[in-house]
């Protein structure tokens, strides 16, 4: 049970990262391969402030949110000057620069990293794994709710308009530049928030844990599940996040399976598992359509029945 809960916390941390990454990659259509770096920024600030300045876990959450958000803002500003593939590689480069900062700046503990991060406590009780899962799920629910809310606002619609056609969006009055920057900031801030949970959950942060590979995994999860959809983001994190544990019985082939499953999915189902236009979604749509038509037919066939 405890083991499943720990796997659950890992999956939930990944899900927060994928749902937040979806805001910038799914809605705005901007490539971002630096979500792992933003997780790292949040985790590092949370770690430094909880170990060195004895800040409470609950205060490190907004701190991690804000610091990663500022980093996202900077990337957002940079993104305005670069078109698609140039931006993609710049975000890849950001991972290396951030890891170098963690390694070389003494504030972040240097190459040794930061360890002995205390367990958070609530009402005088130290966190159990259940508490980590609870807080993680609440964070995830919050990020999902914000994402969903965005989908229904003028702001969210504008982001998608930017994705579909930037020039057209700006011609109908969407402030493209500032909206892009806001989306980058928000996406990074949520990832930083996940970092505030990551740091005490792992009890230690080391520079190399937040490299390029972590960012690739997060983006792969999002695309695997279905880019542009919240359900896809969550499902991708759940499936690929649990995969290393699910495939323990073939330990030696786990990473091979990860790569193979990823490329097979992208080859045969580039929409992702439950993205718009994927086979699964089409089938469910068709099935629900069918159900509704039948029910509708049933009511029209016997109008006088019942009451």
């Amino acid at each position: 049970m405890s083991y499943m809960i720990v796997v659950g916390v890992t999956v939930v941390i990944y899900a927060i990262l994928t749902v937040s990454l979806n805001i910038i990659v799914g809605y705005v259509g901007q490539p971002n391969l630096a979500q792992g770096a933003f997780l790292g920024i949040g985790a590092y600030f949370a770690a430094v402030f909880s170990t060195r300045y004895h800040m409470s876990f609950w205060l490190t959450i907004p701190l991690a949110f804000a610091t990663a958000g500022v980093a996202g803002l900077v990337l957002g500003a940079i993104s305005l000057r670069l078109r698609e593939d140039f931006l993609a590689i710049t975000t890849i480069g950001l991972n290396f620069v951030i890891v170098a900062v963690f390694q070389y700046v003494p504030f972040f503990g240097g190459a040794v990293g930061i360890y002995a991060i205390p367990l958070p406590s609530i009402a005088g009780h130290q966190f159990s794994n259940n508490a980590f899962l609870t807080v993680g799920l609440l964070m995830l629910a919050f990020v999902m709710a914000v994402s969903k809310y965005l989908e229904h606002t003028w702001f969210g619609a504008s982001l998608m308009a930017i994705r579909d056609d930037e020039t057209a969006a700006s011609s109908v009055g969407v402030p493209v530049a500032s909206y892009k920057v806001i989306a980058f900031t928000l996406s990074a801030a949520f990832a930083g928030m996940a970092g505030s949970l990551y740091a005490p959950f792992l009890s230690a942060v080391t520079p190399t844990s937040f490299g390029f590979i972590e960012s690739v995994i997060v983006l792969a999860m999002l695309i695997f599940g279905g880019l542009g959809t919240i359900r896809g983001a969550v499902l991708g994190a759940v499936i690929l996040g649990a995969l290393p544990e699910a495939f323990r019985f073939i330990s030696n082939y786990r990473l091979l399976m990860f790569g193979a499953i990823l490329l097979l999915m992208l080859r045969f189902q580039p929409e992702g598992l439950v993205g718009e236009g994927s086979v699964l979604v089409k089938l469910t749509r068709r099935a629900t359509e069918e159900l509704r038509r039948r029910r509708h037919k049933g009511t029209t066939d016997s109008p006088a029945a019942g009451v």
């Binding site: 990659v25 490539p31 698609e84 593939d85 993609a88 690739v216 983006l219 792969a220 695309i223 880019l227 082939y253 990473l255 091979l256 990860f258 790569g259 193979a260 990823l262 490329l263 992208l266 080859r267 580039p270």
Partner: peptide, 18 residues
């Protein structure tokens, strides 16, 4: 551009394991 990029990374990871 993202789909082929990630698919290529999938090949890259899988081949390192091979």
């Amino acid at each position: 551009p993202l789909i082929p990029l990630i698919a290529g990374i999938g090949v890259f990871i899988a081949m390192e394991e091979v």
